[in-house]
Design a protein around this nucleic acid. Structure first.
Lengths: 115, 115
DNA sequence: AGCTTATGTCGGCTTAAGTCGACACTGGTT
DNA sequence: AACCAGTGTCGACTTAAGCCGACATAAGCT
């Protein structure tokens, strides 16, 4: 992976970390409620039970496939595709009312981003 | 990573793949609307611009940190922690009305899961 | 309490994720 | 239509993600 510089993957912003921990907790809760063991999950998804345990702890460097697989087995995979939906992105819609390109514009005015 | 067996990470279920592609598209749309380039994103997050491009295409084996980082920079990180929330998990709540353990139960009746 | 099973952890191993530099392509601007 | 900048892709390299087997601990059932 990275050549050893530690940023996003090693020490994510606290908000990111918090969100991942929350997600992991939610996944674990949903799994336990359904009375599924990590081993059963691992078999169903074709991954080792260790990575599932790590995902439920919110490990940031775990591939999204693992998280998505859990959501899938739990019958919640649609929720993933709802994330960041353009039609719910108010900030984005405001900006899109001006221009809606396929790329970020090369140069131009000082109108760059939020905050 | 895996010893070469191809399941979740290499060829995820189509629903998982679809959800990831949708997510990637949403992320790209939000980024472009904000007029941010991949390079700017990469600098802000401390990752290479390649992985960001791959994430926007919905690559399953990319770490969730990358996806989460994008959400974070776009001001949508909270949405991640909302995924699979127990209080919105109707199926889970139904089951939890019977028992709410910390682990899946060892043995017991043939009552295992949904469908 | 005792038994059973789920989950945590450790170490070694293999493979691929992520980085970096360079070049090609493509879309937006003037 | 020419130019410039954003994005796609390739190849080589470094590092760690995920696997596996085994053992330790903790939680649930009787």
């Amino acid at each position: 992976m990275p050549r050893s510089r530690g940023h996003l993957l090693t020490t994510p912003p606290s908000e990111v970390d918090a969100a991942l921990v929350a997600l992991g907790y939610n996944l674990r809760t949903a799994r336990v409620r359904r009375n599924l063991t990590l081993v059963q999950m691992a078999e169903a998804l074709g991954v080792s039970r260790e990575v599932l345990g790590e995902a439920e702890k919110g490990k940031a460097s775990t591939s999204i496939a693992v998280y998505a697989g859990l959501l899938w087995r739990l019958g919640m995979i649609e929720q993933l595709g709802e994330l960041a939906r353009p039609d719910r992105d108010e900030e984005g819609q405001r900006l899109a009312s001006f221009r809606e390109p396929k790329r970020a514009r090369p140069a131009g005015g000082p109108l760059d981003d939020d905050f």
